[in-house]
């Protein structure tokens, strides 16, 4: 076993016990990050893990995995969206109010008209009664005159 590998294995042992410093962890990272070297298969796990670590630290910065709105504009976009939403809600509310108002006006007019017709009908009925009464008077008068 080379001196290099012995040192790496000792560092890995420390790494597993969470006793390595950031400096030592970066040594491990550089060792396993080197081009595919002839590696003892028992260290494959460490190679995969340190390659992943490096990939993860860089990947999210440049990849399209990170699509959060440009930091500088995220708040104004958010505000704009909120403003548009508020505008839509308000317009809808006003429209509904207006609709309600129209509907109420129609109902009122209908009721008023209905009342008016009822009154006319009542008067007509009364008039009819009066007519019958008049006819009755007419007949009586005729009888008396005869």
């Amino acid at each position: 076993m080379s001196e290099d590998q012995k040192h790496i294995e000792q560092l890995l042992q420390k790494y597993l016990e969470a006793q390595t410093s950031l400096e030592e962890e970066s040594q491990l990272h550089h060792f396993f990050g080197r081009a595919e070297q002839r590696l003892d298969p028992k260290l494959y796990w460490a190679r995969d893990l340190f390659v992943y670590r490096g990939h993860e630290a860089l990947a999210s910065v440049n990849s399209d995995k990170f699509k959060v709105l440009e930091g500088s504009n995220s708040i104004s976009y958010y505000r704009l969206a909120a403003a548009i939403a508020a505008l839509i809600v308000t317009s809808l509310g006003v429209y509904r109010l207006e609709e309600n108002y129209k509907e109420r006006r129609i109902k009122e007019t209908y009721t008023e008209t209905r009342k008016a017709f009822m009154m006319i009908a009542e008067q007509l009925e009364l008039a009819q009664e009066q007519t019958v009464y008049l006819e009755y008077i007419d007949q009586t008068m005729n009888k008396l005159l005869k």
Binding site: A18, Q19, P41, W45
Partner: peptide, 21 residues
């Protein structure tokens, strides 16, 4: 507690990857 948790995490990662080889 931080070191114990980290150590367990790293050992578990090692065991799981090594198992696949």
């Amino acid at each position: 507690a931080v070191r114990v948790t980290l150590s367990r995490a790293r050992k578990e990662i090692r065991n799981q990857i090594a198992k696949q080889y």
